[in-house]
Write a protein that binds this DNA or RNA. Structure first.
Length: 591
DNA sequence: GTGAAGGGCCAC
DNA sequence: AAACGTGGCCCTTCAC
């Protein structure tokens, strides 16, 4: 295929190219860089295409480093990229957005992401890949050569082949979008795609912002945990090797305490009845009778703390900023939830000792907001169950209200045990819990557990209906959807009871978990628009929680904006149930 | 030496 | 046997 392109390296050509492109409705957009990390590499090329020919801008010709952000010659490009008039089509636009922000100093606005569109269309279909070449192959039936992608983009002179490759990736975006969008419309995904496309800029910004970790504090905490681990390891080693015959011959044999096989063996030699799993849940009942089991559980706890939440996280501190810039995958799960890695900031232990290490730098504050019981509110709203909705509308303690309703007593007569019971029940239901699991969790007999679940669903009949409908309809259509239209497709063997059961639980949970993700993403965009140009910066998100760092003087204003964004987003989706947000302003990520 | 799988466990 | 949804990270084990 012939590729038409113009290489641009001077202000006059850039200006006229940009004014040509201003007249377009859609612009294919791509960048080439010398590194995957915008804090480490150079932005070498920017490609803009109208679908017929591509303008390839040689950024190096316009300067380097920070001067690019203000270079007058680049103003036409910045204006074009941050204009909301033309839609910029890019594949995995978070990448391009970060480079545009960090190196050119402007926000990429009005984005259409063909990567996210492809993921939404093929959601939960694990077979399909969503790289640009894969998407081009699948939707256009053509093969795209990506070999130049990993070539040397830092070379003094780029080869003709490199520039042609760069041009080609941008020109094809319009055609890819056309085909994808037909499917987006046909599959009822326009609203959810809009939410995703609008969310890219806030997430790109959040990754660039990073979060501040007080290294000193973290090291102090790590030292405490490491010491505990060493002590627990020593004690556990002694207790376990007591059951090993060769102990007297060669001194104490070393057991690898992190080896499930070796530990299981040693426990069995000591007469501890372990079979199958050695999960904490399974071992806990044995801890009273066997001190060695209690010691193992203690060791596991401190080992996890020092291994998973130890030295490693410090290696993620970026020297250029002194902060941690994790990777957020916008559609990390088919439900629409984010996932996070390098490091995973969504699994920092809830204990104060860890979270208090994530602090606001001097003169700044963290504003922390989380949705109160958002998943239960979504379930109430989706199912339109009157008693469930009433429980929320009363504004009273929700789990206590549930307890009052299922036990048939007055709200002020609910004991703490009854409340805790109702709480576990409420959460279990969101995950499609069954009688056996519920019995195990609560210690009830199976018939008692069955009885309790029956009473619970009798209290909330419409919710029961909705859950049953989900379980039934998935058998025929094999899909589930959130309130935004996000869809998950399921594959299961209809003759396999466990696969069918898993699909049915998924069909109950996905709309709830996924709608929660829809709401969070909408809130992120509303927040982004409201805090633009202020001292407030988005620094982390954890499913139903948002962390914003702000100048101390602006903390109250930022808190109000954050709360408003979250409430507005929630109300766009939930029509009959009130939305509640808990707010904290603090020097650290804890209350 | 490297990578995948399995077990375990952290978050919501 | 498992029968509670979604992720990622760490460690061991095992195959190549």
């Amino acid at each position: 295929m012939e590729v038409y392109f113009q290489l641009i390296g001077d202000p006059a050509s850039l200006k006229s190219a940009c004014s040509e492109l201003e007249r377009e409705e859609f612009i294919g957009f791509d960048v080439e860089t010398t590194d995957l990390d915008p804090y480490k590499g150079e932005l070498r090329l920017v490609q803009l295409s109208n679908g017929r020919e591509t303008k390839v801008v040689d950024i190096r010709a316009f300067g380097s480093g920070d001067e690019l952000k203000t270079a007058p010659a680049l103003k036409p490009l910045r204006d074009l990229l941050s204009s909301k008039k033309q839609t910029k089509i890019a594949h995995n636009a978070k990448f391009d957005t970060k480079w545009t922000r960090h190196h050119l100093g402007c926000d990429l606005e009005n984005i259409y992401d063909t990567y996210l569109a492809s993921v939404l269309i093929g959601s939960a279909d694990g077979e399909r890949r969503h790289g640009l070449a894969d998407v081009v192959q699948f939707f256009l039936g053509r093969t795209l050569d990506k070999t130049e992608q990993v070539s040397d983009w830092g070379a003094a002179e780029l080869s003709a082949s490199q520039i042609e490759y760069a041009a080609k990736d941008a020109v094809i975006m319009l055609e890819v979008r056309d085909r994808l969008h037909e499917r987006i419309i046909a599959d009822g995904l326009t609203q959810v795609l809009e939410i995703e496309n609008q969310c890219i800029l806030p997430i790109a910004q959040m990754e660039l912002n990073g979060i501040y970790l007080d290294e000193q504090r973290w090291r102090e905490q790590l030292a405490v945990v490491s010491k505990k681990q060493a002590v627990a390891a020593e004690e556990l080693q002694g207790m376990l090797s007591a059951g090993v015959a060769q102990a007297s011959l060669f001194g104490r044999p070393e057991i690898n305490l992190d080896s499930i096989d070796q530990v299981t063996n040693a426990l069995q030699n000591l007469g501890v009845p372990v079979e199958g799993t050695t999960r904490a849940g399974a071992l806990l009942p044995l801890a009273d009778k066997y001190p060695v089991v209690a010691k193992l559980l203690e060791y596991r706890q401190v080992a996890k703390a020092s291994q998973s939440f130890g030295e490693n996280i410090l290696s993620f501190i970026e020297p250029a900023t002194g902060r941690i810039h994790a990777d957020f995958r916008q559609i990390g799960a088919p439900t629409g939830r984010f996932s996070c890695s390098n490091p995973n900031l969504q699994q920092i232990p809830h204990e104060t000792e860890y979270r208090r290490c994530f602090t606001a730098p001097k003169g700044r504050k963290l504003v922390i907001a989380d949705y109160s019981q958002i998943e239960l509110r979504i379930l109430a709203d989706i199912s339109k169950d009157k008693a469930f909705i009433d429980a929320f509308q009363s504004g009273a303690d929700f789990h206590a209200a549930t307890a009052a309703q299922i036990f048939g007593i007055a709200a002020d007569a609910v004991t703490p045990d009854q409340r805790s019971f109702a709480k576990r029940l409420n959460f279990g239901v969101v995950y499609g819990i069954g009688v056996q699991r519920f019995a195990k969790m609560t210690g009830l007999s199976e018939s008692q557990a069955e009885d309790t679940l029956r009473r619970y669903f009798a209290t909330y009949p419409r919710m029961d209906d909705w859950l049953r409908t989900q379980a039934k309809s998935v058998l025929s259509d094999r899909t589930a959807r959130t309130l935004s239209g996000r869809i998950a497709r399921m594959r299961f063997n209809e003759n396999d009871r466990s696969e069918v059961g898993a699909a049915q639980r998924y069909a109950k949970n996905m709309p709830i978990q996924g709608t929660s993700a829809d709401i969070l993403k909408r809130a992120l965009r509303l927040l982004h628009d409201d805090i633009r140009g202020t001292s407030a910066k988005l620094v982390n998100i954890v499913h139903d929680e948002i962390l914003v760092e702000t100048d101390a003087a602006d903390a109250e204003e930022t808190a109000r904006k954050l709360e408003n964004a979250m409430l507005s987003a929630g109300r766009e989706f939930l029509k009959d149930v009130p939305v509640k947000v808990d707010l904290t302003v603090s020097d650290e990520w804890s209350k």
